[in-house]
Amino acid sequence: MTELKHYFAPTSLDQAVECLKDGDVTILAGGTDLTPQSQAGRIKFKHTLMNIRHIPQLSGITLEGDEIRIGALTTITEIMEHPLVKQHLPALVEACDHFASDQIRNAGTIGGNICNASPAGDTLIPLLVLDARVELASMPEDKLYRHSMPLSTFFVGPGKTRKSLCELVTCVRIPVPGAGHVSRFYKHGTRPALDISTISIGVAGNYRDGVLSQVRVAFGAVAPTPLRAELTEQALEGRRLDAAAIENAAAIARDEVNPIDDVRASAWYRKEMIHNMTKRVLENVSA
């Protein structure tokens, strides 16, 4: 038996944020995290269950100026198949391609992946290296209020974000990468499909004449939050991607992460994989 008393399915963003005002609301998107978590007793439903799937403002992938906007309700499948994403954001496509199974991809949303804030959330790593911003909506007074923040500052701990109980994630915004931009995603697990990352790696930057600049590196499942690896980035910034630089960056990466032992792998193994696979990803960039 749950505390759940009301079910609400708003058809506009205004209705949704108004409903969120009292803060006693559980937001339901695809439900692929929410359902297993509530079944296992790890989360308790709040007073109201709000299904946000009927809010048109939350879906779609569009080009807005020099940004690609991905609505919070966009499913993993939709992202993976969208021409804009395919053209500009190969690392995100790669992450979606290694995400769960078809059934889950058809239901699970990017907003859910972000708000669930798992250190192993697969879209988070490419979003971090692509400098994504997350946009939030609320209704502090009587008017819809939106603000955004860099995704890199959004995560606080496992399942914890800087989003308040009265806020809804509306979309992520990703700057359209310029010419010479490269991005890569690598996921390591026991199985090629339907697996939670043991570790994951995202690398992005401008690659010109063998030199990487504006480097972004992020790691999944090796810290309480998805991790932007600044030391590793510094080690690579402006350097020629030769064998020595790659080995050096991989070694720094190994020390920069702080994983734990769990059912999926030991901390030691995760560090080894960060080292070996960072090397492999960088070699792939330089190849």
Partner: peptide
């Protein structure tokens, strides 16, 4: 892939997320 993890009598993975059956691509 399959491993029912028991630590001091406690089962750590009574679910298909962490108890890994072989999936089609493998």
């Amino acid at each position: 892939t399959e491993d029912l993890m028991i630590e001091n009598g406690h089962m750590k993975n009574p679910n298909f997320r962490d108890y890994k059956l072989v999936t089609a691509p493998e």
